[in-house]
Design a protein around this nucleic acid. Structure first.
Ligand SMILES: [Mn+2]
Ligand SMILES: [Mn+2]
Ligand SMILES: [Mn+2]
Ligand SMILES: [Mn+2]
Lengths: 218, 218
DNA sequence: ATATAAATTTAGGCAAACCTAAAAATAATA
DNA sequence: TATTATTTTTAGGTTTGCCTAAATTTATAT
């Protein structure tokens, strides 16, 4: 069965909130993410539940069924493939793409997704480092940790940042991108802010809320 | 002001029916094209008229205003650019693209259109030979005539076919594509059917309804 | 010129997706 | 535990874009 754009957005939001272990997601969280009101969410949950895309028990939050997860993964796949396309082929910068991908992810055509994937040579990560689910919905998660949790003073490589335009523009400004080498020079235990050495060159001080949105691997 | 997908489809339909001289288009024609009912069309015409995208006088059909024409041209531009992309980059065949382009043409992002156009190196015609309006909405129309009107027995080159999947598949089957060289060997004055020589090789008999959907130049 | 037919508009409804305000259930706190 | 606060659901509306059926206007044919 084909979903409406709105239904797809709800599925995707539930997926993002639930995390890999498919935790229950609350009505309010969904409303906040989608910029709608709780009453609207409740209505939609009933519809999705009737289609067996979610498990819904009044007042108990929702989880995705296998079918719902599959749908959500396909939308995420499309979103990330399009983001990759926009950056690699159309030369968009990483902070300009999310909005457009939000529209493109709803284009209905199985052929389109697969041919796009082929054209792009099966990319594994989108421009923010988020993994692109394969055709079967399989995501291989790389081992990375949040920069804020890094204690060692070894060199770390940026492999994931949060897809938020303002953050992304700020990171560009201070010279951080996917693949950047970071060394934590100093960590303020009071406010969790950090002094970083970026690519062995510039020293930059970042707040904890920035550090919380960057992940690295060693 | 931003139009809904539905409004955009109405504008585009009116544009296609009106032709270059912007003739008045009837309610019924619009309804037939869009697969809606006349009553629904009347309703939408009022909305478009209120936005000054069309000139509408009850019972008198509609014409596009300059603003409406501009909008319609942009949608046509997007449709054709995406069709070109699907064929040239994603290796779709010319009969598979219309449906997908119908969706893609409604993606809202000026930057996207312009970067796509640049990426594709400013194509002038879509895969069916339809001209792609430039950024300013200017279409350069090539001098071509319908195959059905060809009398001379000179060699003609196919430069435009109607974008209808079934027709396109049939043309592919008999070996006609954009750029094919055709010579009219025989013309039946009773049913307007023709015997063609295609690319100097195969002889094929086509009905008038096929000949009516192919245009050529000399 | 009338009568009939066709095209168009109006009237009244429906479904999707949103809303606000009120009611009900659950959670937190005194 | 009783009270208060928060979360969620229900009830009742709105807008968009569609529908059918009936009324109206315009076109066609006798
Ligand atoms: Mn994104
Ligand atoms: Mn992303
Ligand atoms: Mn087309
Ligand atoms: Mn075309």
């Amino acid at each position: 069965m084909i979903q409406t754009t709105s239904e797809e957005n709800y599925l995707k939001t539930i997926f993002h909130h639930a995390g890999l272990s498919n935790n229950a997601v609350t009505t309010n969280d969904i409303a906040a993410s989608l910029g709608t009101k709780a009453a609207s969410v409740t209505e939609m949950l009933k519809k999705l539940s009737a289609q067996k895309l979610i498990r819904y028990k009044k007042y108990n939050g929702v989880t995705l069924t296998d079918s719902g997860t599959k749908q959500a993964l396909l939308i995420v796949r499309k979103h990330r493939l399009w983001e990759y396309f926009l950056v690699e082929k159309l030369k968009f910068s990483w902070d300009e793409i999310h909005e457009v991908a939000e529209q493109l992810e709803h284009i209905q055509s199985e052929t389109l997704v697969e041919r796009l994937d082929t054209f792009l040579e099966h990319p594994r990560f989108d421009p923010h480092g988020d993994p692109i689910p394969d055709k079967k919905g399989i995501i291989k998660k790389s081992d990375s940790q949040k920069l804020i949790d890094v204690t060692e003073k070894k060199e770390a490589i940026v492999n994931l940042v949060t897809d938020q335009p303002e953050l992304l523009r700020y990171l560009s400004k201070i010279g951080i991108s996917i693949g950047s080498k970071l060394k934590v020079i100093e960590k303020n235990s009071f406010d969790q802010s950090m002094l970083l050495l970026i690519n062995g060159k510039s020293k930059v001080h970042i707040s904890s809320s920035i550090a919380n949105n960057i992940s690295v691997q060693f």
